[in-house]
């Protein structure tokens, strides 16, 4: 028993480190590819924590859907748009007060959420289940039963949502003969000051056309 507890704590610590390290990597990388890779780490850490909490099915889904589909999508788009673009991380802000305020807000949310949730969990002592009890060994069955009974409407509507999203994505990313949006009517703002992205022009332009989509 003791060993199990120790193992769980160790695993938890490792997972927490992976999660927070990955998150820092996501927000701290100049290169979007690095951000995406850090995101994979975070997602993997979250999957670990799911396993620790006996949500095996969700852990599997987490890895398959997030790491397998969503992050791949991110990377794909990064590649599509060109990997050679870096954001100047601490470039000029429009207003001086904005960045400190953002940090302050994020910290406040973290602290307050911690306080709030920890205070709440002290009152949660395994109150009776409203829908269905967990069953770690059969969690696919339990979740499936819930999905197709209590949550069947939500389930159907998410199906519709997915279809709509797919259609929307096709419409958006299609290269239209006639633009769906009249861009002349909505000009993109010129940023005052220097260009905040440094673009490494390819040395020999004819070699590899980076401007895939224009």
């Amino acid at each position: 028993m003791l060993a199990a507890v120790i193992v769980e704590r160790v695993v938890w610590a490792v997972a927490a480190m992976i999660i927070l390290g990955g998150a820092l990597g996501v927000i701290g990388s100049e290169n979007p590819v690095h951000s995406a890779l850090s995101l994979v780490a975070t997602l993997f850490g979250v999957a670990l924590m799911f396993v620790l909490q006996e949500a095996y099915f969700l852990a599997a889904i987490q890895v398959i859907v997030y790491a397998g589909a969503i992050v791949v999508l991110f990377v794909f788009v990064i590649m599509l748009l060109g990997v050679d673009r870096f954001e100047v991380l601490w470039g000029r802000e429009r207003a001086l007060w904005r960045r400190p305020l953002a940090v302050l807000a994020a910290v406040a949310i973290t602290v307050l959420a911690c306080v709030g949730m920890l205070a709440t969990t002290t009152e949660l002592t395994g109150a009776p289940s409203a829908t269905a009890r967990l069953d770690a060994d059969n969690d696919v069955m339990v979740i499936g039963r819930s999905l197709f009974t209590d949550y069947v409407w939500a389930f159907e509507i998410t199906g519709v949502l997915l279809t709509v999203a797919v259609v929307g994505a096709v419409v958006l990313s299609r290269r239209p003969t006639v633009s769906a949006i009249d861009w002349d009517e909505f000009p993109v703002d010129e940023v005052d000051g220097e260009d905040e992205f440094t673009i490494d022009e390819p040395q020999d332009a004819g070699d590899e056309p980076t401007e895939v989509a224009s």
Partner: peptide, 17 residues
């Protein structure tokens, strides 16, 4: 609580990002 603290920290980092 341990998981919730990690979640809160992750949420804060995401928001900051």
């Amino acid at each position: 609580s341990a998981y919730l603290v990690v979640a809160a920290a992750l949420f804060g980092l995401g928001a900051a990002g």
